[in-house]
């Protein structure tokens, strides 16, 4: 299924998340578009939603100068 609801042009920084929900419910999350440790804050949102962090690895962009991003990570049920 494809959605076409994303803005066509947007000057704001775009963050992309690839989520694979395995048949057993475990989730592999790839976070793109962040530099530095700000991606960890984004990851925490998904950790709150799904469950427990099993493993994590960083790519080269993780070690680039950090951005300042603020998230609301309130738990919702």
């Amino acid at each position: 299924m494809k959605y076409n609801s994303q803005p066509s042009t947007n000057p704001m920084p775009q963050r992309e998340f690839e989520i694979i929900i395995a048949p057993d419910g475990s989730v592999e999350l790839t976070v793109k578009g962040y530099k530095g440790k700000s991606c960890l804050e984004a990851m925490k949102i998904f950790e709150k939603i799904v469950g427990e962090l099993k493993s994590r690895r960083e790519t080269s962009e993780f070690y680039e100068p950090e951005e300042r991003v603020q998230w609301n990570i309130d738990q919702r049920h």
């Binding site: 475990s26 099993k54 790519t59």
Partner: peptide, 15 residues
């Protein structure tokens, strides 16, 4: 790409 993680699900749900 910045980071990749594996999350184990916890089911906390209303009926």
């Amino acid at each position: 790409m910045s980071c990749v993680c594996i999350l184990t699900p916890v089911v906390i749900a209303a009926w």
